[in-house]
Design a protein around this nucleic acid. Structure first.
Lengths: 121, 121
DNA sequence: ATTTTATATCACTATATAATAATATATTAA
DNA sequence: TTAATATATTATTATATAGTGATATAAAAT
């Protein structure tokens, strides 16, 4: 009914969706997971993730723009770290949720390029 | 170092990113927010969100495939509801996080079509 | 000053996917 | 059965965006 419409603050939804987009890409999520263990330079992140350097920089900029990570220069190196411990909490909650719904998410190939399943539902 | 690489279970990352993609689209997030108040038929969701019926159905299918929502038929109506209370918990945590980083997320126009900001950083 | 190293930016391409329009399916009512 | 209603599917289009290669900027070392 109309009580629902009141709860649908368009702008709040947009912002919240944007936050989740920070987590919604495998490369960015990889970076965030690594940063859960502490600050890392861009070079280290490149080394650990195996992503290209420009790709890492681009994703870090995206995350930094959204305040999900913060940067700190030390000489030639720039160290990135998570901006808020609640980011880790959200990831933890998500892991708990996934332990139950993982199967469904795994089977969700709706938007997958690797759509090579042979099971028909 | 290498200890990080061990933590980077590729498949786990992919699945987790997929979960967040469920939340990362404004239309889907809207649907989820509405469902936080209880089960709704497709028609009600169309009415409340203002999205087109096929669009709602498509997003619901995506969410259902990923086990984020469950469906239940009653006559001609199909009622959708959140599959797990932890979904709500994740959203709550995210709201708390957003209360602090919202400004940054709001200003994050990196991938925005509505890129009409006049402030230069 | 020049070179080396670390990171960022930019232009471009390819892919993913959100939205739409048209149509199909399923359930109930007449 | 036929009509009406509710939901799902499909094909298509347009847009968003991830990744790459080339280059630029910045700091330190020679």
């Amino acid at each position: 009914m109309d009580t629902d419409k009141l709860l649908l603050d368009e702008q709040a939804i947009q912002i919240k969706a944007k936050l989740f987009r920070g987590f919604a890409d495998p490369s960015r999520l990889m970076l965030i997971e690594v940063l859960r263990n502490g600050k890392r330079s861009v070079g280290e992140l490149v080394e650990i993730t195996g992503l290209s350097q420009p790709n890492v920089s681009n994703h870090l900029r995206c995350l930094a723009d959204c305040n999900l990570v913060k940067k700190e220069r030390d000489g030639r190196y720039i160290y990135y770290s998570l901006s808020d411990p609640r980011i880790t909490m959200i990831l933890q909650k998500s892991e708990q949720l996934l332990s139950e719904v993982a199967k469904g998410v795994y089977n969700c190939t709706r938007y997958d390029s690797t759509n090579d399943l042979e099971n028909n539902e």
